[in-house]
Computed example of a mutant assay.
Amino acid sequence: MSVDIINRDAVAEASHASRATAPKESDVFGRIGNLETRLARTPSEIDAAQAVRYRVFVEEMQAQLPAEAMRRKRDFDAYDAFCDHLLVLDRSIEGDSEDQIVGTYRLLRQDVAMANGGFYSASEFAIDELLARHPDKRFMELGRSCVLPDYRTKRIVELLWQGNWAYALKHGMSAMFGCASFPGVHPESHALALSFLHHNVAAKDEWAVSALPHLARDMDLMPAEAVNPKRALMALPPLIKGYLRLGAMVGSTAVVDKAFNTTDVLIVLPISSISDRYLNYYGADAGRFAS
C-alpha cells in the first residue's frame, strides 16, 4: 500500500467541496446504543479518521509511512481527497465528533475512481482485468479498514457492515473488493491460512483476479489434504474471516507490502453472493440498524 503524500489543504478543500451541501442526516447509516455509523462530513473529521488510521497502522502494526505522515501522525494519501470515509463514532465519549471516532473505512466507487486515476488496489492487483470482464457492473473498493483496540467487538463489525451495505445500496453497486492483510511480510508464516484460502475460496472464472506479476506471492503453500480447516479458520485475521462469512472470494496470489508490514490478499464480494443469512440480518434495504 504505497502512500503518496499531497498537500493536506488540497485534501481538505476537495473533501469539503464534496460534502458541503450534503444533508446532515442523509449520511447516517445505522445506530446501536451509543454507537453510530455515518460518512465523514468535514475535513476535520477526515483528519481525525486519519489519526485513527495512524494509531492502528503505525503505532500498533509498525507501518513505515513517508516522513511527512510520520511527523503529522496521520495516515493520509492522495485518495483521501475523493474517497468517502465511513466512520463509527462512540457518542458516549465527551467532546466533538472528531474525538468520538473509533473506527473507519475508506470507500471508493468505480465512477469516482475512474475520474481520478483508478482504484488504490490496482497498485498491487490486476483490478483492470477484473473490471474489463464486467462492463455492466459497478464496483466499489473498501480500504483502510481499522478499529481502535478497545472497540474490536461484534457491535462495531456489525455497524461497519451496516454502513458498507447501506452505502452500496444507495449507490447501486454490484460488487465490492479491497485488500485485506495478514501481519508481517513473510507469507510462509501464514502458510496454513493462505493455503486454506487458496484451496477453498479462490475467486474463479469471471471473478478470478491475481496480484500484478512482479509482486505476486504464492498462496498455495500446503497441499489441500494437509490443511486443517478448523485450525486455518482460527488463524485468519478477524476482518478476512468476516468477509468469508458474507460470501467473499479471495484472489489467487498475495502481495507483500513492506511499508505497511503486511501480506495482502484481495477480497472480492459480488453483491449477489452475499449470504442470505446476512441479507436477512441487515435487511434487503439495509434497515437493520437504521434509525
Score class of each variant (00 low, 15 high):
D136L: 09
A122K: 10
F139E: 02
G163T: 06
H134Q: 07
I156P: 13
G184T: 04
L130Q: 11
I127S: 06
L169G: 04
L159R: 15
Y120Q: 03
F182T: 02
K137G: 02
L169W: 06
A168P: 01
E129S: 12
K137S: 04
K154Y: 10
R138H: 06
Y167I: 04
H186R: 12
G184H: 04
E129M: 02
R152Y: 14
A175F: 11
W165M: 09
G178A: 10
V185S: 10
A175S: 14
L131W: 06
F139H: 01
A132M: 14
L130D: 08
P149I: 10
K137D: 09
F182K: 05
L160P: 13
S174H: 07
D150N: 13
S174N: 13
S174C: 01
L169S: 07
F139G: 05
R155V: 10
S123F: 06
M173N: 00
M173T: 04
I127T: 08
M176F: 15
F177W: 03
A126P: 07
A126Q: 14
W161I: 08
G143F: 05
D128M: 06
V147D: 01
A175G: 11
P135A: 08
W161N: 13
S174L: 02
E158C: 11
L169R: 09
E158H: 11
H134V: 03
H171Q: 09
L142N: 05
S123K: 07
S121F: 05
H171C: 00
Q162M: 11
G178K: 03
S123M: 02
W165S: 13
Y151W: 12
